[in-house]
Nucleic acid binder design. Structure first.
Lengths: 214, 214
DNA sequence: TTCTTGTCGAATGTCGACATTAGACAGCGG
DNA sequence: CCGCTGTCTAATGTCGACATTCGACAAGAA
């Protein structure tokens, strides 16, 4: 039984994640330190520590002397974020494409089929899970710590802020096409193609989500 | 006369930057909150706020329950950071290359000549200044806020951590060649070439600095 | 010797109170 | 009616003290 040490700060971070995922906290809302501290039965100090971590991950906007707010992203900012993720992950996959075995590429194709199948059944939870596995396998070969730091942050930020929109953009045909394109590009070992396809994937995803917010 | 508002936190951040640039604080050193607070005549609270900002920018490593340390980057980590900067800036320049006027490209070429000239005279300060202007002009056309957030952070981090090594890697011939390559790639409007050249520039810079640290 | 264990110092983690400031709003004057 | 100004409130900014924990080192046992 692992002994888990958890500081108040980490509990606060998790708590805010939950509030965001459950929709009890949304874009534009202010996180009031005193209120949150009272609700959690702790002082403001660990709240402030947690805010900094959330700011770091892009999940909170900080306005000096005013407060901490859940960011309201404009359509352009949404597209910018997804585009940047595409730039980083496109490179990550391209650089390591020759490290993928035939079995792993087959695994990517299987996951794509799974996603398509789950999307048909409107099983959003499983689509997300398979998609996550697809994504994790794709960048698992890269060991550029700086690159991974940024992709992890972006991944978390986009996941938590736009989780609720995913159900609306799961057209089974398109989701299958886009992921199959990525898997095939890796199979081809065509460096330029890989970067182009991964980038395009994220630009399209970002555009779709941005369209819902207008 | 502009009224500048400055909180203690910002003063602490600036103070730490100065310590780093002056060499009074170096890799592996611990920043002790109490000591720094006493030296600056303030309490630990704003110090802690400042630490979070420095951590965000990669200038401080945080170890829970232990302390804040100036990071000790391995050669691989140095190369990773520069590589990532190349990925982001290469894309930024590539995407906006058709926004550069003939005059601006000429400006890039002039700055390259200036850098070469200053490097010959061993005027490091002016080399850095011209290099900064070159760099700023290069990415000034891009307006992807997420991309710029990351390039700014990386730029700041690498500047402050490796400032002291720059004097050692200013071979006038090479510095001129690399920057001229970038300027010419922009002139050519060849998208693939631009990304490749910018990436290569940063990989080479990172490798050189990493070599000094071994 | 080498490993374990206990103690201790110093650093961060947390607390509650006070200081300061941004933003709202009412009242005044044009 | 419109804009300015002063006041008020609620939030963050800062403080000093106490609680907790990591890491080092010395003492003891195998």
């Amino acid at each position: 039984m692992p002994i888990v040490k958890t500081t108040y700060k980490d509990q606060v971070v998790d708590h805010v994640y939950q509030l965001l995922l459950q929709g009890n906290l949304g874009p534009g809302d202010q996180i009031k330190e005193s209120l949150l501290a009272e609700q959690m039965g702790i002082s403001r100090a660990p709240i402030r520590e947690a805010m900094k971590e959330l700011i770091m991950n892009g999940l909170v906007d900080y306005r000096p002397q005013v407060g901490n707010f859940i960011p309201v992203l404009s359509p352009k900012q949404i597209i910018d974020s997804y585009t940047t993720r595409g730039i980083l992950e496109g490179y990550a996959v391209m650089e390591t494409c020759d490290k993928f075995s035939a079995e792993e590429i087959e695994k990517l194709e299987n996951l794509t089929s799974q996603m398509e199948s789950y999307a048909h059944k409107k099983n959003q939870k499983m689509v997300v899970e398979a998609g996550g596995e697809f994504h994790d396998l794709l960048i698992s070969k890269n060991d550029n710590v700086q690159l991974l730091e940024y992709t992890d942050r972006l991944s978390l930020k986009l996941h938590i802020l736009f989780f609720k929109y995913w159900g609306k953009l799961y057209d089974p045909t398109e989701i299958a096409r886009r992921h199959r394109e990525i898997a095939e590009s890796v199979k081809s070992r065509d460096l330029n193609l890989i970067e182009q396809v991964v980038r395009q994937h994220y630009v399209e995803t970002g555009s779709k989500i941005a369209a819902f917010k207008e």
